[in-house]
Computed example of a mutant assay.
Amino acid sequence: MNKEYKQKHVLKRVKDIKGFYTHLVVYILINALLTIVHLWIDSKGYYGENPYGINYWGTPLLWGVGLLIHAFKVFGLSNWEDRKIKELMEKDNLTAEYQKEIDESRWE
């Protein structure tokens, strides 16, 4: 069970990190494209007097908040997970050796 647990934990962690980086790349590409489109439209004078209103900043700003939440979920909560795993293991009276294996699996 030790190896099976470690393998599932590591695979989930890698999948989460890969998902975040995919999200980041899509965010950069789409917002770069939107910026180019906005600049092109602005050069034609279609926006009028206020070319940089909510239409320009809305998508990158709101999507950026979502990206920050995703980053915090993937990278920021890992310490909480470690503490919770240790707490539950202590409740269940699992061995210190098993706790050490889980700690080491986080860095393998």
Score class of each variant (00 low, 15 high):
Gly66Lys: 02
Tyr5Pro: 06
Lys86Arg: 14
Val26Arg: 03
Asn55Glu: 04
Lys8Leu: 15
His70Arg: 09
Leu39Lys: 06
Leu68Phe: 13
Val65Gly: 04
Leu67Gln: 01
Val10Ile: 15
Asn93Gly: 08
Tyr27Gly: 02
Glu49Val: 00
Arg13His: 10
Glu49Lys: 13
Leu62Asp: 07
Ile85Leu: 10
Lys84His: 04
Leu88Asn: 15
Asp92Cys: 05
Leu34Cys: 05
Ala71Arg: 03
Gly48Pro: 10
Ser105Asn: 05
Leu29Tyr: 02
Arg13Met: 11
Leu94Arg: 08
Gln99Pro: 09
Ala71Pro: 03
Asp82Glu: 09
Tyr46Gln: 08
Ile36Lys: 00
Val26Leu: 15
Ser78Cys: 00
Leu29Cys: 09
Arg83Tyr: 13
Val65Lys: 05
Leu39Trp: 14
Gln99Asn: 06
His23Asn: 04
Ser105Lys: 09
Trp40Cys: 02
Lys8Arg: 13
Leu33Thr: 07
Asn79Arg: 14
Trp63His: 05
Tyr47Val: 00
Leu68Thr: 09
Asp103Pro: 00
Met89Pro: 01
Arg106Ile: 05
Trp40Tyr: 13
Tyr46Asn: 07
Glu90Arg: 14
Lys3His: 12
Asp16Trp: 09
Glu81Asn: 06
Phe72Leu: 01
Leu88Ala: 11
Ser105Glu: 05
Ala32Trp: 04
Lys100Arg: 13
Gly58Asp: 08
Asp16Leu: 12
Lys12Ile: 09
Phe20Asn: 04
Leu94Val: 11
Ile69Met: 09
Gly53Asp: 03
Leu24Cys: 08
Ile28Asp: 08
Gly66Ile: 03
Gly48Phe: 07
Leu68Trp: 03
Asp16Tyr: 08
Lys15Trp: 10
Glu90Phe: 01
Trp57Asn: 05
Asn93Ala: 12
